[in-house]
Simulated scan of single mutants.
Amino acid sequence: MKPVAILQHETSQGPGVLLDHLRQRGICCALIAPCDEGSAPLHAHDYCGIVVLGSNHGANEQLRWIEQEHCLLQSALAGGVPVLGHCFGAQMLARAMGARVWRNPCANIGWSRVWVTPHAQARMDLPAQATLFNWHYDTFEIPQGATRTMYGSHCLNKGFVHGPHWAFQGHLEVTAQSVRNWCDEGEPELREAGGPAVQTRAQILAQLPMHINQLHQIAERTYSAWTAQLQRPRLFFMPKWGEARLALA
């Protein structure tokens, strides 16, 4: 089976529980750091899936590795390779599909409630409401042909699906420790940021175990539904010859 490419851009924004989910299912991964390496893969056919994580950069920045990620996602869209975008990754997927990415009216930092559309409830086995972890300033429009999956009070477009390609303007993958690390790293940012959708460090860390437990339940359902789309090898039995043959699911 080809690996899932995981594009990680920041040390504090790793794959978290998504990596655990993939490993538990025997799905191999290729961790790639485009921001550090200054480049990204261009061809999606080398992978069975593409995951794009968050970044301190913006999807519209004119950087070589960002443009290469743009090409990679367009390759995935053309070749039907499933894409899973988190935050910056969601914005990159929207942009690759021809949608606009721009500054949201206010910053979204901390825990916030989102509403899940009936379509997403059915496809991802999700409840009607969920609480996500956020740390973003930009937003995207829903690409042509895609369907909104989540929406929030201070950011309308919190997610979309287009076939096997899924985007979330938030973070399903975080762990309790990664949230603490992110708050440590972003402490100056938290002091400067303001607005109706920005929480303080104390507010973010309050009831952290409860928030993380609920988020992991949402993440497990979502990741299970997304990974079910990946092309995976399986064995099938040929009764006539009594041989096991390898096929692609």
Score class of each variant (00 low, 15 high):
100 R>H: 11
130 A>M: 13
30 A>T: 05
47 Y>T: 04
178 S>Q: 09
28 C>D: 15
129 Q>D: 14
14 G>K: 10
51 V>W: 11
99 A>V: 01
26 G>F: 05
164 P>G: 06
73 L>V: 06
177 Q>R: 14
204 I>G: 04
73 L>Y: 11
10 E>W: 01
83 V>K: 00
156 L>V: 00
149 T>E: 02
91 Q>S: 00
163 G>A: 06
78 A>L: 12
206 A>D: 15
75 S>H: 11
103 R>I: 00
112 S>W: 10
86 H>M: 06
222 T>Q: 03
94 A>K: 01
144 Q>K: 13
164 P>S: 13
154 H>Y: 06
67 E>R: 15
168 F>C: 02
146 A>I: 10
217 Q>A: 13
176 A>M: 01
128 A>V: 11
99 A>Q: 04
156 L>F: 01
67 E>V: 10
197 A>R: 05
80 G>P: 11
178 S>N: 05
91 Q>D: 02
174 V>D: 12
157 N>V: 00
4 V>F: 06
12 S>A: 13
59 A>Y: 04
110 G>C: 10
55 S>E: 07
81 V>C: 11
67 E>K: 15
148 R>H: 01
176 A>E: 14
220 E>A: 15
169 Q>D: 03
72 L>E: 06
41 P>K: 04
6 I>E: 09
246 L>V: 15
94 A>H: 01
177 Q>A: 15
15 P>S: 10
150 M>W: 05
247 A>P: 00
142 I>G: 04
233 P>W: 04
159 G>T: 02
15 P>D: 08
244 A>Q: 13
226 W>P: 07
187 E>C: 03
66 I>Y: 08
102 W>I: 01
233 P>N: 03
149 T>F: 02
148 R>D: 01
88 F>H: 04
4 V>G: 08
26 G>E: 08
195 G>Q: 11
125 D>K: 10
140 F>S: 00
131 T>S: 13
243 E>Q: 15
31 L>S: 08
184 D>T: 15
155 C>T: 01
35 C>D: 13
109 I>W: 05
96 A>V: 02
110 G>E: 09
98 G>P: 05
90 A>R: 00
175 T>M: 09
44 A>M: 09
208 L>Y: 06
133 F>M: 13
26 G>N: 09
149 T>C: 08
187 E>V: 03
68 Q>D: 15
41 P>D: 04
79 G>W: 03
40 A>F: 06
2 K>C: 04
169 Q>E: 04
77 L>S: 03
64 R>H: 11
52 V>Q: 13
73 L>F: 09
206 A>I: 05
241 W>K: 07
147 T>R: 12
210 M>I: 12
191 R>A: 15
8 Q>L: 09
32 I>M: 14
8 Q>K: 13
173 E>T: 12
160 F>Y: 03
49 G>V: 06
62 Q>D: 15
190 L>F: 06
208 L>S: 05
172 L>H: 09
154 H>E: 03
